[in-house]
Amino acid sequence: MSTPKDYVLEVEDLGVSFDGFKAVDGFNFYLDANTVHVIIGPNGAGKTTVLDLICGKTKATSGTVKFKGKEMRGMREYCIVRAGIGRKFQNPSIYENLTVLENLEISHPAGRGIFGCLLFRRTPAIQQQIESTAAQIGLQDKLDTEAGILSHGQKQWLEIGMLLMQEPEIIMLDEPVAGMSVRERTETAALIRRISANRSVIVIEHDMEFVREIADRVTVMHLGQILSEGSMETVSADPKVIEVYIGH
């Protein structure tokens, strides 16, 4: 066994129950640095709940969530974000009335406090970070476009870009390619590979082709528990996984 320090994120025995119903139970999860770790599973398996537990949106009833050896469970959401865990929601949540540039700027960590906000100025360094992030998500020509009129795929990328602005060490993406065209999927896969060069990415996804393209490691969930874990090949050869997917 490796020492705890080897993992960016260590989740042990994580569980939550809603009125006695155990949505997630005894969940163990270890995330390596600079990898793309995909969580798959049938509907209702508890995948989104796991992300909610890690980022503090839902309070866990048992277990530990350690980020670089530090306990995150019980911390407020914004503190977890500031520690370095970013979260993207399933539906694109961007600020529709603001421009792409303003969306990215508002996500920059400088000036998150009240007075920091009031005195915030866009320095050349921030401007440059905004531009390079926009280039990374392919929206460099849309900086002054109102975010509300972007296409669905572009909105999803913008939200990923907003996460990148925070320079988190872990990015969690909930079904990033849902509703995207084939071309947009390919580009998103390339984007995820690119951003995992210097950070870890947790992705929840249904689309097996897409998973095959991006995943370094796959965890299969079923009924709130882990069914199987390993590389895409190992997992897809696992009889338990086949049974759950085909028997569904």
Binding site: C55, K57, R76, E77, Y78, V81, R82, G86, R87, F89, S93, I94, Y95, E96, N97, L98, E102, E105, I106, S107, P109, G111, R112, G113, I114, C117, L118, L119, F120, E159, M162, Q166
Partner: peptide, 25 residues
């Protein structure tokens, strides 16, 4: 018209997103 004003509107329209951008809503 400062960043605070934009954050205010953001809180009004996308509360969760603001919280998960690291703001204390």
């Amino acid at each position: 018209n400062t960043r605070f004003g934009r954050v205010l509107m953001a809180v009004r329209d996308q509360e969760e997103r603001v919280r998960f951008s690291g703001y204390d809503v």
